[in-house]
Nucleic acid binder design. Structure first.
Lengths: 126, 126
DNA sequence: CAGATTAGGTTTCCGATAGGAACCAGCAGG
DNA sequence: CCTGCTGGTTCCTATCGGAAACCTAATCTG
């Protein structure tokens, strides 16, 4: 267990705290993962992610754009085409997110098992 | 840019998706970081984190407990004392989270700058 | 014994947010 | 003119987060 050390708290008012709260959103990690392979269209993300509504996807992308992690490129075509891609800053988040999702892939079942064990506290100890 | 590869999407219905949504909560990452150094009391977390309400902290800890990442230990004393600590499974999350917070520490200012530049689109280009 | 204090947790109220579905904008094709 | 495609927004509702008060239980003060 590495821990964060005494001066490492980041639990107060430093910008790191803000950055963590920025990406620790229900959809942000998934959206960034969806953008990790290159420019993707709005509709592609909708289908790729699965479960996110257009409204929330738009909001998430706008927030990421405002924070400099995502760039929006709207083509003046018909039907309209809008592509989103990671900025260089956003690209630096891919490795951390990749590590996180690797953890999730490796431990997702363990989490489900724990959830299972917890939801049946019916001690039939006989 | 590494990306996640074609079969790496995790964007569908795999357990990894659930695990990501579990930890991609506004407070979960901060709480886990607060637990990374060892057993901590409820009130200690409140002060350590700063900004979280008791209700939400309790909810977050309960959820983490249900998912097998945190263990709760209530001492039958007065005044009551309750300590929370990471389970072995929860401890495996510290490294990924550490990497994430390191990113936040390194790039927090860049994010703030982008936020700044975005919120003043007043092009006084003269 | 009555009252204040400590510590964890719950309840109540309120504002913010997510989710779903429908609707809007702009243009190509019939 | 109507339909369809695509991105985005609006409306309504359910849920969640935050603040503050209240609850329990024991210890200290008087």
């Amino acid at each position: 267990m590495r821990g964060f050390g005494p001066g490492d708290s980041f639990l107060a008012d430093c910008p790191a705290r803000l950055a963590v709260e920025l990406i620790a959103d229900k959809w942000t990690v998934v959206v960034l993962a969806g953008l990790s392979k290159g420019p993707v269209r709005h509709g592609e993300l909708i289908e790729l992610i699965g479960g996110i509504s257009r409204k929330v996807l738009t909001q998430t992308l706008r927030r990421l754009k405002a924070h400099g992690l995502v760039r929006r490129h709207a083509y003046a075509e018909a039907p309209p085409r809008v592509e989103y891609e990671l900025t260089p800053l956003g690209a630096t988040l891919i490795d951390p997110i990749h590590i996180l999702t690797e953890w999730a892939r490796a431990n997702g079942d363990a989490v489900l098992d724990a959830l299972d064990a917890d939801s049946e506290p019916v001690a039939h100890h006989g």
